[in-house]
Amino acid sequence: MRIEILNIDVDSNNVMVIGPPLVGKSIFVRNIVWEKVSNGFGGVYVTTKDTAEAVLDWFQRFNLSDIKIIDCVSKTIFSDAPDTEDIKRVSIMDLTGISVRINMFLERFWKSGKRDVIIAFDSISTVLMYLNPQTVFRFLHVLTNRIKSFGAFAFYTVDEDMHDERTIAMLKQLFNGVIELKDEGNRRIFRYLSPSIRTEWRGFSIVNDRLEVSS
């Protein structure tokens, strides 16, 4: 199964988007999701850094409202904002709750006949701040298998400076594809790696929260 992202033939259902802090991983992933959902994909955004309202606000600025959100922030900061049809809130400690809700959205897409689904998980690094790598690994093992068997595509952001080598190695086992982002001082670049694909580095910039890729 393949999905075209920024003219790259991405050949993995589970892709880690890794780079240093502030390089633009979240914006990068949001733009990918925005592009696909605007073209008919079902979209789920799991957020551990911004509340559902902040994420929805971002998408709505670019005329997109039809996005499902799993908000792992509100409950952690003791907001009692309620759930809605498309927004579900769980504490970041509640991996079962996150897993159940992702599956619930997938089931809804499936039953409405939607087979093209894109998921963003932003970010794995936050989960790793609360729970040990073993626990997170077990959770991701179950999740990545489900995404694959559904045929969906998921992008997981990871802060590369926050984790030790063992943790990064463990994550690499779970994700067949990797998008690496780098900040070269005067420009930012990215490339895609998988067992069978290795693209050239390409430049990108972020203008007004939108991604622009140089050719």
Partner: peptide, 11 residues
């Protein structure tokens, strides 16, 4: 409760 606050739990 280990996964949610007592308030969330009651809700």
């Amino acid at each position: 409760t280990s996964t949610m606050s007592p308030t969330s739990l009651r809700n």
